[in-house]
Design a protein around this nucleic acid. Sequence first.
DNA 1: TTTTGATTTAATCAAATGATTAAAACAAAA
DNA 2: TTTTGTTTTAATCATTTGATTAAATCAAAA
Lengths: 204, 204
Amino acid sequence: MAGKREKKSYVTTEEKIKAAARKVFMQKGYGASRTRDIAEEAGINLALLNYYFRSKEKLFHEIMMERVQHLFGAVAPIINDPSLSLESKMEKLASAYIDMLLENPDLPMFVLNELRKQPDLFKSQMNIEQLLKNSSFIKQLREKRSDVEPAQYLMNIMGLMLFPFLAKPVLLATGLAGEKNFGTLMNQRRQLIPKWIKAILQTK
Amino acid sequence: MAGKREKKSYVTTEEKIKAAARKVFMQKGYGASRTRDIAEEAGINLALLNYYFRSKEKLFHEIMMERVQHLFGAVAPIINDPSLSLESKMEKLASAYIDMLLENPDLPMFVLNELRKQPDLFKSQMNIEQLLKNSSFIKQLREKRSDVEPAQYLMNIMGLMLFPFLAKPVLLATGLAGEKNFGTLMNQRRQLIPKWIKAILQTK
DNA sequence: TTTTGATTTAATCAAATGATTAAAACAAAA
DNA sequence: TTTTGTTTTAATCATTTGATTAAATCAAAA
């Protein structure tokens, strides 16, 4: 994108813009974000933003793809590794996810919300459909519980990890968690969630 | 608000505007909603919208309060009823919630997302803080598991119910659920979630 | 040093947007 | 029928917003 001259600074202008866009888009969502705010946040001129990225929409699209990847990227390798038992898969998932989410607390809300408004943004990404249905994870779930749809357990695992971050503002507002406390609670969940899921898989 | 003359139609203009606002705000969020879109959706003139509600913000505030109430209103009575056992509380919660959510699938995403952008909108609502901490539900949880914070279980219950609706676009896009299938899965969860929670409460 | 092409800026546009105003339409009361 | 106060509309404003243009700056290559 844009010219190919040498970069003078270690932080290219393009990366400055993307960082600013990431921040503003994540904070306000696509519709409520103003290109001027992004430019100001990046410390550059508005025209420059349109010079690097042709439009607000194109810029958003790049950020969105990147964010989706960041949110779901860790899942595929774990879910598809046939050398891992069902239990170790869940331990790895919980651990990797909680770490990442503690550093990107409002990533899930951003991605899920924008995805709701423009569902097409996901389909292009890849064909997760096949990747999922043939995954070793789904097979292991079917073996263990042929009576319940694997999708149910997938929702449970993801929900137990993601929901606290989606509901964070409510947790804080209701005093169920303080800002400091929240981190502690999440760290506890790192070990708790795998145990809970095991228990869930053995019900009845 | 506005004049006090007789209402001619069974659907007042005010209610038409609120219905339209509800629809548009829920679909696009506050920042991306245009007052003109709301007016058009309501089949009225833009000026009329400002005549009934003084501003976009005031209109939004009314809708938002109403939606928060709708999302969390059912919880308090159940959680606070000392005559219900922990188990029946969870059965009631799951049942009431899943019904409501199937009729308002994107209510949770709307409320949680707007709440994230303007956390103050919640504090005014009431003092859930006291209401929760003194609730019979929290006491029962402490009795059963003094080793784990009650907040953890609250997150679990709410998460198991709400998460599938928050992630619905992803579920549809990945083929994990079809639009028809989704309803079936949720209805299954009505019975499954209480069982799962019981299992979770007995771990270790 | 001069030239060349990338980078950046100030100024400006057209469209969109929240809001107001002044007047018209209307329905009930007198 | 006339009057009164509410409801609704068309027209208009001032800002905001995404985008473009033409010119200035700058750093490397010749």
